[in-house]
Amino acid sequence: MDGNKKAFYFLFIPVALWLFILIILPHIDLFLSSFKPNSGEDVYTLENYSAFFADPIYWRTFINTASYAIGVTLLAFVVSFPIAFYLVKVISPKVSGFLMLLLLIPLWIGELVTIYGWVILLGEQGVINESLKFLGLIDHSLPLIYNNLSMTIGLLYMSMLFMIIPIMTTMESLDDAMIEAASDLGASKWTVFRRIVIPHAMPGIINGSIIVFMLVIGDYVAPNILGGKSSLWFTEQIYNQFLSTFNWNQGAAFGFLLLIISSATIWMALRLSGQKLDKVGD
């Protein structure tokens, strides 16, 4: 065995162990337990999975969560695309580097803290309500928090960056002359975006959408803290199974259902939009 190979194994084995012990093993364990009944009998059954379809509260919550996640993903695209375009094509690289840094700050702070930041902003005695009252514009606090709107803001806020960055990356390779050529050929600004800029940025958009969708559908913090009573998120169902009902097997089954159904959703969306998964990595 030569030195190169030794070095390879030396580096590879810890990584493989890490992956196996901390990620693959627990998943296998969870996967197996998702087929065990809550009674503790040592048999394998599908009852945890059928429970999802039997009780409307579960699958309705799931459909609700998934549609919401799709909506937030679309919204994230609509908000992020102009930002990415602006950062890459409109302003000088120096300024855009600085603005990028500002965009990254929420990421360093962590989701929990930034979401509480929104509580401080939107709360009944929050910054916005108090300011408006101080200015005499309102008498009573506006219901800004604990509803779908505040939850959407929170979800958007924590996931947007993951849409902006992939789009920026693909946008950087867009030759400015291509935009000029299109407008030289008589294309309006809107046509330039629709026919040139968006198709060019498509791999980035798909990439960003997958990440945002996954982040949003699997998020727990924003729906829990900023959402209202009615905005029940599927992750909260899983949480309840584990920590309220102590039905770990049921929770595991829900976890895997979330993984499988959301992956299937992405796969279907890719098929419908005619994109190929291998192109997404470009």
Binding site: A177, M178, A181, S183, D184, A187
Partner: peptide, 17 residues
């Protein structure tokens, strides 16, 4: 504006789509 001028341009980089 460029799209309204009766001229067309072939770019140095060609800029094909």
């Amino acid at each position: 504006s460029p799209e309204k001028r009766p001229v067309n341009i072939v770019f140095q980089s060609l800029a094909l789509f």
